[in-house]
Simulated assay, not measured.
Amino acid sequence: MSDDHTHVQEFFSTRAADWDSKFPDDGPAYAAAVSDMGLGTGGRVLDAGCGTGRALSSLRAAVGSSGTVIGADLTPAMLQAAARAGRGRHAALLLADVTTLPLRSESLDAVFAAGLIAHLPEPSPNLRELARVVRHGGTLALFHPIGRATLAARQGRQLRPEDLRAETNLGPLLARSGWRMTSYVDEPDYFLALAFRES
């Protein structure tokens, strides 16, 4: 495991037990983001870096009982917290590194990723790996329950021009990674960039 992956795993392992209680009001934002993805009944969707699985029930509702929902995370403690919360009934929980997914190429219709991009060790190739497992024309949702400015303020820092989630950076990054950004919303209480798999 690389140093980047070890750092991410350590960061989230120590926070897994009380993650949901720290952010109890995020549920409606997750549901809105999943709704904005336009998933259909029978769809196949991956929650990449699913953490404690807060999006899984919304994803299951969107694709219905005939659909497939996979929640993948690198951190065992996060998946254990998801299972304890009963979220395993909405999805298959998979211990996996989203930068090298154990999934067939073009096997999914969509990927949902909450807060993931900040933790990718090599964003362009890592986003290309997400593109690999999605069919042509499939959807990528990069989500955060609060916007960039709100997150920066919460963390006691200024917004930086090199922030990967800035629209001027994210569009070209996605384009280099096999995606085309179709919408971008960065409001105080909601961040969602949608893209479709282009190549």
Rank of each mutant, 00 (worst) to 15 (best):
A110H: 01
A91E: 02
P28M: 12
L101N: 04
T99W: 11
L56N: 04
T6Y: 13
A113V: 02
L93A: 10
L108P: 00
A16R: 10
T100V: 14
G147W: 03
L194V: 01
H5M: 14
D47Q: 11
S2H: 08
G64D: 02
L101P: 04
Q158W: 01
I117W: 08
L142Q: 02
N169I: 04
F23Y: 12
G40Q: 11
M78R: 07
H90A: 13
G156S: 12
S107F: 08
L140P: 01
F11P: 00
A83D: 11
G42Q: 10
P121V: 10
A48V: 08
L39V: 03
A175Y: 02
G64A: 10
D73Y: 09
M1I: 07
L59I: 02
G43E: 02
I146V: 15
P125H: 08
P125C: 09
D109K: 03
S107R: 08
V34D: 00
A48I: 02
W179A: 03
L116P: 01
L46D: 02
D18T: 15
P76T: 13
A114I: 00
S105G: 13
G147H: 09
R44E: 01
R132F: 04
A141R: 01
P102I: 11
D189I: 09
P125T: 07
L79W: 08
V98N: 03
A114N: 11
P123M: 06
L151A: 10
T14V: 14
C50N: 05
G51R: 07
P188M: 13
L174F: 06
A31Q: 12
S177F: 03
G156N: 08
E167Y: 04
T41L: 15
S65L: 12
L159R: 15
R176E: 14
L74M: 07
S124Y: 00
V133E: 07
R60N: 06
G115Y: 06
F12N: 01
R44V: 08
W179S: 00
Q155L: 15
P145Y: 09
R87F: 01
E162H: 12
R197Y: 03
G88F: 11
A110D: 09
D25Y: 06
P161H: 12
A16L: 12
T41F: 05
A29T: 06
Q155S: 13
M181Y: 02
G53C: 09
L94C: 11
P172V: 08
A17I: 03
T6C: 11
Q155T: 04
G51V: 09
Y30D: 07
S58R: 05
A81Y: 01
G115S: 04
V34E: 00
I146A: 12
A91G: 04
S124N: 05
T182L: 08
T75G: 05
P102F: 13
D109W: 03
S2T: 15
R89V: 14
T75V: 14
V185S: 12
G137N: 08
R176G: 04
D97W: 11
A152S: 13
D73W: 05
G43W: 03
L93I: 11
D73H: 12
S57L: 10
